[in-house]
């Protein structure tokens, strides 16, 4: 048998202790606020339909199971069953996401606050991140203002062709014509994110990027009640004022599956238990998922996610 020369951890000095300390700090934070720690299954019979995320399937005694891309659905079932405020620290899995800031297996901190508005949850996220990182600077800006301030364009008004022309003048993009959201993602990640300094909350996303957030009419546009938190240009957390309407939820799952089919990809099983829980009554709540490995990177000043993992993807 060949001698493996990569048995040693990828974690840099201080990363293991830093993670243990961070977990203690988080648990104290939530205990003080009366938020209950929960633990939900990672290997489930259904998965998400989001076309931008590829789940990993496993064979379990001949039956297909899915490694969870986030604990969202199981946690919402607990909320519908009357759990009250809950949080969880767990592993999540997303196929193909490997790089300096991504590992296909990663750790999420996810929590739900019944009765909270999106603004109230953003304030709590800011409190937690500031407590961990010791930084207080923060800016709160809508998605529309963000594009207007950094690029001078209105992301709710420009069509796909105009966005494409704008993007191609500034970036060498290999692909052909894309939909509006792809151009917006390209502009956001390449031209705006690198300019974001400190803690920045972005809220009120285009309705087409709602995922599991509620929609709201805001003057002339429809926005998704969703936020993202950036720390020095790195995406750290994604939150929603949660959709509670089971009929609307089912329609979004089905639209996702149509989008997958149109791309020639297999459709995915719709989580009937989540829909049943929503029908029985998901309390009005706000929820957020935060990348714990990235938070640890920021706390330690690490350059790459590999630096804060015991064994990164190439060593496990």
């Amino acid at each position: 048998m060949a001698q493996a020369d990569d048995w040693q951890p990828s974690a840099i000095a201080g990363a293991l202790a830093g993670r243990a300390e961070l977990l203690q700090q988080l648990r104290a934070f939530f205990a003080a606020r009366g938020v209950l720690e929960v633990d939900t299954p990672l290997l489930c019979s259904d998965t998400i339909t989001d076309p931008a995320i590829t789940p990993i399937a496993c064979d379990q005694a001949g039956a297909k199971r899915w490694l969870q891309t986030s604990p969202e659905y199981a946690m919402k079932r607990l909320l519908a069953a009357g759990s009250g405020p809950i949080y969880q620290v767990c592993k999540a899995f997303r196929a193909g996401e490997a790089g300096g800031r991504h590992n296909p297996e990663f750790t999420l901190l996810e929590w739900y606050r019944p009765g909270f508005s999106l603004a109230a949850l953003m304030a709590e996220v800011a409190e937690l991140v500031q407590a961990v990182l010791g930084t207080s600077l923060h800016r709160v800006v809508s998605y529309r203002e963000l594009f207007q301030q950094h690029l001078g364009v209105d992301p709710f008004v420009l069509g796909a062709e105009e966005l494409e022309r704008f993007a191609r003048q500034r970036l060498d993009y290999s692909g052909g014509s894309e939909d509006r959201d792809t151009w917006l993602d390209l502009l956001l990640t390449h031209l705006i994110e690198p300019e974001l300094e400190g803690l920045v909350f972005v809220y009120d996303y285009p309705a087409s990027q709602a995922a599991l957030a509620r929609l709201r009419q805001e003057g002339d546009i429809t926005v998704a009640e969703r936020f993202e938190l950036y720390v020095n240009g790195v995406e750290l957390a994604n939150g929603y004022f949660e959709l509670t309407d089971a009929t609307e939820q089912r329609a979004r799952f089905e639209a996702d599956n149509r989008a997958l089919a149109a791309r020639g990809e297999p459709t995915r099983p719709i989580d009937a238990r989540l829909l049943a829980a929503m029908e029985s009554g998901l309390p009005s709540c706000a929820g957020v998922a935060l990348g714990l490995d990235r938070l640890l990177m920021m706390k330690l000043g690490a350059e790459r996610v590999q630096d804060v993992l015991s064994f990164d993807w190439s060593r496990c």
């Binding site: 931008a52 300096g100 390209l186 956001l188 990640t189 390449h190 993202e228 995406e235 994604n238």
Partner: peptide, 13 residues
């Protein structure tokens, strides 16, 4: 460099 918004399109820069 792998670049991907959590809820969006993945790119390689």
């Amino acid at each position: 460099e792998f670049v991907k918004p959590g809820k969006g399109q993945a790119f390689n820069r």
